[in-house]
C-alpha cells in the first residue's frame, strides 16, 4: 500500500473533564490529527474492560481512555477504578499479542484543551509506529498468530 497508514483510534472520554477539555481544544481552534473517534461516557468508572477488548477485536488500532485528574473526579473516585482497570488491561492485551501501547489512559481536565491535542498527536504517532491492529494484518500474513489461538 502506497497510502500512509492512518490509525483508527477509539477514544473513551468522561463527560466532565476530558470531553470538556476536547471541546475546549475545539473552541480554541487547536489543530490535531483526525484519527480518534470519541465515545462519551459520564465517568471513566463506566469503562467496562469488555469495551476495550471489543474495540481491539473489531480492529481498532488503539484505544485512548481519558478522564479527570486524580482528586478531580466528578463522581469522587471513578478514575481511580478505571486507572486500575487500564493498568491490568494493558497487561492482559499483551497476552493477546497486542502491544500495551495500543491502550492508553490519560488524565486531562476541562481546562487542558492543549494537552488533549498533544495527547492525540502523541497517540497517533505511537500507533503509526506500531502499525495496524495485528488482527487486520492476519489476512496478509496468512495466519492468525497468538490473536486467534485455536486452543481457546
Amino acid at each position: 500500500m502506497a497510502e500512509e497508514f492512518e490509525p483508527n483510534i477509539l477514544g473513551i472520554l468522561c463527560n466532565w473533564c476530558t470531553y470538556a477539555g476536547a471541546d475546549l481544544a475545539g473552541t480554541s481552534r487547536m489543530q490535531y490529527p483526525t484519527n480518534v473517534r470519541v465515545i462519551r461516557i459520564m465517568c471513566t468508572g463506566r469503562l467496562d474492560p469488555a469495551f476495550v477488548l471489543k474495540a481491539l477485536s473489531v480492529g481498532a488500532d488503539g484505544v485512548l481512555v481519558s478522564g479527570c485528574h486524580i482528586g478531580d473526579c466528578h463522581y469522587l473516585a471513578g478514575n481511580f477504578k478505571s486507572r486500575r482497570r487500564v493498568a491490568l488491561l494493558r497487561k492482559l492485551i499483551e497476552e493477546y499479542g497486542y502491544d500495551r501501547e495500543r491502550l492508553r489512559m490519560t488524565m486531562i481536565s476541562a481546562s487542558e484543551g492543549a494537552i488533549w491535542a498533544d495527547v492525540v498527536q502523541d497517540m497517533v504517532n505511537t500507533i503509526k509506529k506500531l502499525g495496524p491492529n495485528p488482527l487486520k494484518q492476519v489476512g496478509a500474513a496468512g495466519q492468525a498468530g497468538v490473536v486467534a489461538d485455536d486452543e481457546f
Binding site: 465517568c43 469503562l47 467496562d48 471489543k54
Partner: peptide, 30 residues
C-alpha cells in the same frame, strides 16, 4: 457514574442511558 455496571461479573447491573448494549453498538459501528 456507572462504575458498578462496568464491574458486575454477571452483567446484572444496567447503567441506564449508557448500557453495555448501547456502548457496544457504538464500538461496532466504529
Amino acid at each position: 457514574c456507572g462504575t458498578c455496571g462496568s464491574a458486575c461479573p454477571s452483567g446484572a447491573i444496567k447503567m441506564q442511558h449508557f448500557t453495555n448494549e448501547q456502548i457496544m453498538s457504538e464500538i461496532e459501528a466504529f
